[in-house]
C-alpha cells in the first residue's frame, strides 16, 4: 500500500499548498482588458483580441509553443519508427516477446466500409472548415491554432477513410512531416522579417501598412503547421496500431 499512501499524502500536501490560489476571490484586474479594448484593434489590426494577443502581443510565446509541438512530433515519430528495431533483453539476454493482444488486430479490422466511405467524404469538408477558421481568426472566434486542430481532425478523417484504395497524399507521414518543417521554417522567416526591416524580431515588418496582414499570414502558417503536426501524430499512432 505504500503507493496509495504516497498518493494520499501528495494530494493532501498539494491541496494545502494550492488552497490559497483556489480560495483567491479578488476582483479580476482589468489593466490588460481595458488597454486592449481601447488600443488592441488599432495596434494589431485584429478585431478578435485573443488573436491579437496570440499572434501579436505575445507571438513570442506562440513561437515557443510551435517549437514544443515540433519537438513532440519529432520525438514521438522517432520513437515509433525506431521501436521496431529494438530488441529488448532481459537480464539473461533473452529477448522479451512483445505482447500483441489478439484484440488489437481485431480492432483494426473494425473499420467498416461505412466508416471508410463516410469519413473519407467528410474529411474534405472538415479541411475546408478548418481553413475558414484559420483564415478568419482575426475577425471572429478562431485562429491559427483552432483552425489547425480542425485541419488535423480533417486529416484523421481522411486517414480513416483511406482504407484500401489510393490514400490521399495528405495522410502520408512523410508529406506531413515535410509540411510541418516547412511551416516552421516559414514561421521563422516571417518572424525574422522584422529584423531585416528594422522593426525588431516578431514585429509586423511592413512599414506603415496595416498590421493585420501580418496576423493573417501568421494565422495561416501556424494553422498549417499545427494541422500537419497534430495530424502527423494521430496518423502515426493510427498506423502504429494497424501495423
Amino acid at each position: 500500500m505504500p503507493t496509495r499512501l504516497a498518493a494520499l499524502a501528495s494530494v493532501l500536501a498539494a491541496a494545502f499548498a494550492l488552497w490559497p490560489l483556489f480560495a483567491l476571490d479578488v476582483a479580476w484586474p482589468g489593466t490588460v482588458r481595458d488597454y486592449l479594448e481601447a488600443k488592441g484593434t488599432v495596434e494589431s489590426g485584429a478585431m478578435n483580441l485573443v488573436s491579437a494577443i496570440y499572434l501579436g502581443y505575445r507571438a513570442y510565446d506562440t513561437l515557443g509553443e510551435t517549437v514544443v509541438l515540433l519537438v513532440a512530433v519529432t520525438g514521438a515519430i522517432g520513437m515509433m519508427a525506431a521501436g521496431s528495431a529494438l530488441a529488448p533483453r532481459e537480464a539473461g539476454g533473452a529477448p522479451v516477446e512483445p505482447a500483441r493482444s489478439p484484440r488489437r488486430e481485431a480492432r483494426s479490422r473494425q473499420r467498416t466500409e461505412l466508416i471508410a466511405a463516410l469519413s473519407g467524404k467528410l474529411g474534405a469538408v472538415i479541411l475546408i472548415f478548418g481553413l475558414y477558421v484559420m483564415l478568419y481568426g482575426h475577425v471572429s472566434p478562431g485562429g491559427g491554432f483552432q483552425g489547425g486542430v480542425v485541419v488535423a481532425s480533417g486529416i484523421v478523417f481522411l486517414a480513416l477513410g483511406s482504407h484500401g484504395a489510393a490514400p490521399s497524399p495528405l495522410v502520408g507521414a512523410r508529406n506531413l512531416a515535410r509540411i510541418e518543417s516547412a511551416g516552421f521554417a516559414i514561421l521563422l522567416v516571417a518572424a525574422c522579417l522584422g529584423v531585416a526591416s528594422g522593426k525588431g524580431f516578431l514585429a509586423p515588418p511592413l512599414p506603415g501598412g496595416d498590421p493585420v496582414s501580418f496576423i493573417i499570414v501568421l494565422n495561416a502558417v501556424i494553422g498549417i503547421k499545427v494541422g500537419a503536426g497534430i495530424g502527423l501524430l494521430c496518423v502515426a499512432m493510427l498506423t502504429e496500431e494497424a501495423a
Partner: peptide
C-alpha cells in the same frame, strides 16, 4: 525508490515551502 516518491517529494516540498512562507 519509486515513481510515487518523486511526486511525494514534490508535493511535500511545495507544501513545506508554502507553510514556511505563510
Amino acid at each position: 525508490r519509486g515513481f510515487h516518491g518523486l511526486f511525494l517529494a514534490l508535493c511535500l516540498g511545495m507544501a513545506a515551502l508554502t507553510a514556511w512562507l505563510i
